[in-house]
Amino acid sequence: MSTNSAPTSSRTDDIVEIGQLLAKYAVTMSTGDVQGVVSVFTPDGTYSAFGDVYPLDQFPALVTVAPKGLFVTGTPLIEFGEPDESGIVNDANGTQTLQFIDHTQTDIRIGYYTDTYRRTGDGWRLATRAMTFIRRNGEHNSGRPHVVDLSAAP
């Protein structure tokens, strides 16, 4: 895919590339591929859920202790930023729906991700991803703050 210096990227190409990036996130989370999950983020990327923000260096431990199951995501709604002086758009925001099915009890969680994307030399990457849960009572929230003991993860 094109890099920051190549003004040949079309909006459709960018949408497809971001869609594939988010598909990789869902598939690698579903298959337990920690390095695959890490690879979809920028080096300074963060993930937010349950009242906490986790930097990239905590992802391996976070993914290891996260519930396992199937991540079923919808087509993202993407809004692109303004082009830079060379005419290239290097940032975007998006929202993607999620249905997570826990493999041990088939419990279902639903909600959506609110994302920021950044074009890098390696293509589009997630800069931030924040989870919002949709509760049975209709509330939308990031969940109860909790303690995740990342030191216990391998």
Rank of each mutant, 00 (worst) to 15 (best):
I101L: 10
D52S: 12
E82T: 13
D122I: 05
D115F: 05
I78Y: 01
T75S: 12
R118A: 14
P76M: 00
A92P: 03
T116H: 13
N93M: 12
P83A: 08
T104M: 12
F71R: 06
V65Q: 11
A66C: 11
R109Y: 11
Q58E: 14
F50R: 10
A66D: 09
R119H: 08
V53A: 10
Q105D: 15
L70G: 00
D44S: 10
L70D: 02
E82N: 08
P43D: 14
F41Q: 02
L77V: 12
E79L: 07
V53C: 08
D84A: 09
D84N: 15
N93L: 10
P67K: 12
P55Y: 03
R118S: 13
F41E: 00
V53H: 04
T106V: 09
P60N: 08
Y54Q: 06
A92L: 09
G81C: 07
T114Y: 01
T97R: 13
Y112H: 15
D122M: 09
G87L: 06
T42L: 06
T42V: 02
L77T: 11
L62V: 09
Y117H: 06
Y112T: 01
L98V: 15
I101K: 04
T73Y: 00
L62S: 08
A61Y: 01
G51I: 07
R109V: 04
D57E: 14
E85W: 03
E85K: 12
A61D: 14
T95R: 15
R119N: 08
T64K: 12
N90C: 11
T120Y: 01
V63S: 02
G51C: 06
N93P: 01
F59T: 09
T106A: 14
T114M: 09
D115P: 06
N90M: 05
G87R: 04
Y54F: 14
I101S: 04
D91R: 06
R109W: 14
S48H: 04
G87P: 04
A66K: 02
H103Q: 15
P55I: 04
A49G: 00
R119T: 03
N93D: 13
G51L: 07
G87Q: 04
I78M: 02
L56D: 00
G74Q: 02
V89W: 03
K68D: 13
D44K: 11
R109D: 13
R119I: 06
I101E: 06
T46I: 09
V40P: 04
Y113N: 08
T42H: 05
P83I: 07
I101A: 02
T95I: 13
I78C: 01
E79W: 05
A66G: 10
D115Q: 07
D115H: 13
S48N: 03
P83D: 03
H103A: 11
P55E: 00
I88V: 15
A49W: 01
P43R: 10
T120W: 03
F50Q: 08
D102W: 01
Y47E: 07
A49M: 12
H103S: 12
S48I: 03
F80Y: 12
D122F: 07
V53Q: 12
F100C: 02
D44N: 12
D107Q: 14
Y112W: 12
V63G: 00
Y47K: 09
P60F: 05
L98Q: 04
T104L: 13
I78A: 02
F80M: 07
L77M: 10
A92R: 02
P43V: 08
P67E: 14
L98D: 00
I110G: 06
S86T: 14
D122W: 01
Y47V: 10
I110H: 02
V72M: 03
F80R: 05
G111V: 10
